[in-house]
Amino acid sequence: MARPRDPQRRADLLDAIVEYLAEHGIAGLSLRPLAKALGHSTYVLTHHFATKDELVTAVLGHLDQVQRGRLNALSDGTGRAGLTGRPGLGEIIRASWEWHLAEDLRLVRLLHEIEGLAAAGRLSGPYVPKMLSDRADFVAGVLRAHGVPADAAHRRATLLNAAYAGLQTDYLTTGDRERAEAALDDLVALAESWTRPR
């Protein structure tokens, strides 16, 4: 009988895997070198992540959970990241941008690598489309909480996510932060216009 998975051990492994992938990328991912770098056997990895696809799915879930936690902290009025009261959409977008660029740029690069491989057809499986769909659902909820009508929230969340990710890609590719952030100002203005009385 197979030994049951230890959730805490799996979470610890996942943290280490994300760190490894943030450093080495995912395009050439192979379980044997990964296990060796982490100081484990491949059996330990396959015990917690039965296949490479399951491992990638878990990595994406972890990255998405980090982002959701950050968005929740920004949008619930806890005052974290220098925000006080209930921040507007523009404040949330700007604080998220600063957090990504200042604290977690390697994870942003990893996410974009995964999404790019999926878009190029080099990463099979439903996990990337599901992550993007889940992200749109989550951001739509944030938009609804900020007064965006329910019938428009999902459409606008998709637009907001795509534009934001595109600006990240532009900055990561060109290094032109000033131009990317000038465009971010326009995105913020658009998002804020969605909650103004008509």
Rank of each mutant, 00 (worst) to 15 (best):
V142G: 04
P129C: 15
R10G: 04
E98R: 15
D176L: 11
S41V: 09
V148T: 01
Q168V: 01
K52Q: 13
G79K: 07
G77E: 06
A136L: 01
T173L: 07
E192K: 04
L172F: 00
P197A: 15
L60H: 09
W99S: 00
H154V: 04
Q67A: 15
L89D: 01
L13P: 01
I93C: 10
R9L: 15
T84V: 09
D12S: 13
G175D: 10
A50M: 05
A157T: 03
T174D: 03
L107T: 08
L55D: 00
I17T: 14
T84E: 04
G147N: 05
G90V: 06
H112D: 06
A180T: 05
G116E: 11
L159I: 05
L14V: 12
H24P: 02
L34C: 05
G175H: 04
A37I: 12
L132I: 13
L143I: 03
V44H: 10
Y127E: 14
S133P: 06
R5P: 00
L38C: 00
A145H: 04
E98A: 10
S96R: 01
L21M: 14
A189L: 07
T42N: 12
D104R: 15
R32F: 01
A22S: 10
G116Y: 02
E192V: 03
L159G: 02
G90Q: 07
N72H: 15
S96M: 08
P7A: 15
A140M: 01
R177E: 09
V128S: 02
T173R: 07
G90E: 05
Y43I: 07
E113T: 12
R109I: 00
G69W: 13
G25I: 14
R109V: 05
D76P: 04
A136P: 00
S124F: 09
R156L: 04
T169W: 06
A35G: 09
R106C: 11
R32N: 09
K36S: 06
I93L: 15
Y43W: 15
L45H: 08
T169S: 05
L71T: 09
R155F: 02
L167M: 12
V56E: 09
R155A: 02
L89I: 09
V44I: 15
R156K: 11
P7E: 14
E23W: 13
S96C: 03
R86M: 08
A163R: 07
L110P: 06
D186G: 15
L13V: 10
A182K: 11
L13Q: 08
K52Y: 05
G166D: 01
T57I: 02
W194Y: 09
T84P: 01
L14W: 11
L13A: 07
L117C: 06
V188K: 00
N161R: 08
V108W: 03
